[in-house]
Amino acid sequence: MIAKSFSRVLLYTVLLLAALFFLAPLYVMLATSFKDAEEIRSGNLLRMPGSLNFEAWGLAWSTACTGTDCRGLKPFFWNSILMVFPAVLLSTLWGAINGYVLSMWKFRGSELLFGFMLFGVFMPFQVVLLPMSQVLGWLGISSSVGGLIFVHCLAGLAGTTLFFRNYYAAIPKELVSAARIDGAGFWLIFLRIIVPLSTPILMVTLIWQFTNIWNDFLFGVAFSGADSKPVTVGLNNMVNTSSSVKNYNVDMAAAMIAGLPTILIYVLAGQYFVKGLTAGAVKG
């Protein structure tokens, strides 16, 4: 009994220390963002701010300079909003249809096609930068938010297809067979039978895609124009903009603003993400 209690205490101690170590950078960012310049110079990283000073947050949002543009992160943030929601919804819907076809309506060569699609999961995105830029130019959507949406839909398609295909493969085929006998077609089966059973994998895919697209920097810096840069590019430009005095509190506030949507997503919907994974989202 004593050994069991000791093991439990040791386990919780290790987990607590790991959590503190993991959350330390977040604490430093948040605490520094509420300090003024004098408090930062006279204190240390781990010291709590004397008061909640939101001046750095206001500067980071609306007046801090990113190169020659001194409008803060606000325009970049709204560019990311305009980009992320269509890209997440389209790539999820597209992946759901692909997974439905590849698991429930197999055809000759479907397994080979799925195997080729899996290359997209493991292929480094750097190798597609040049051909993708040419395609965007041919389509007339280069350096635009629409072009970024298109790129992220294609980049995320392999992953979303993998998620849905493996999840739908576990659904009894008898449901689809019975519906086909009753006269239901391709879309009716998908909408009336498959979609209602897809809540766990939908949550996993939506959260996964939102996180990947919102936090992306490579595609944002490669394919965006002056008026379509996402928040990650704006944050990078702000932090690397040289000035006479380095405003660490503004940089930390900007980093918190850029990361706030993904933090909120996992705080509010993280339990659904875990439930979706344990329900077989990546089993196959």
Rank of each mutant, 00 (worst) to 15 (best):
F190Q: 09
I193C: 10
I141V: 11
L162F: 02
L197K: 13
A178M: 12
G140P: 02
K173S: 15
A178W: 07
H152Y: 07
I189Q: 15
F186C: 01
W138S: 08
F164I: 15
G146C: 07
A169W: 07
G147T: 12
R165T: 15
W138V: 15
T160A: 03
G185P: 14
A170L: 15
V195K: 09
Y168H: 00
R192A: 10
L197G: 05
L162H: 02
S142A: 09
P172Q: 05
A170H: 14
F186K: 08
G159E: 11
L136R: 02
L154R: 06
D182E: 04
A169S: 04
A158C: 04
V195A: 12
G156P: 12
A158I: 06
F150W: 10
R192V: 08
L154Q: 13
G156F: 12
F163I: 13
G156S: 11
F164P: 00
S144H: 07
H152A: 03
K173H: 14
S177R: 09
P196D: 04
A184L: 11
L197R: 15
I149D: 03
V176R: 14
I149F: 07
I141H: 01
N166Y: 01
I189L: 12
S198M: 13
D182F: 08
G140A: 01
L157M: 13
L191M: 10
I181E: 15
S198W: 06
I189F: 11
G147V: 06
T199K: 09
A178T: 05
R165N: 03
R180G: 04
D182S: 08
I171Y: 07
S198A: 05
L197E: 10
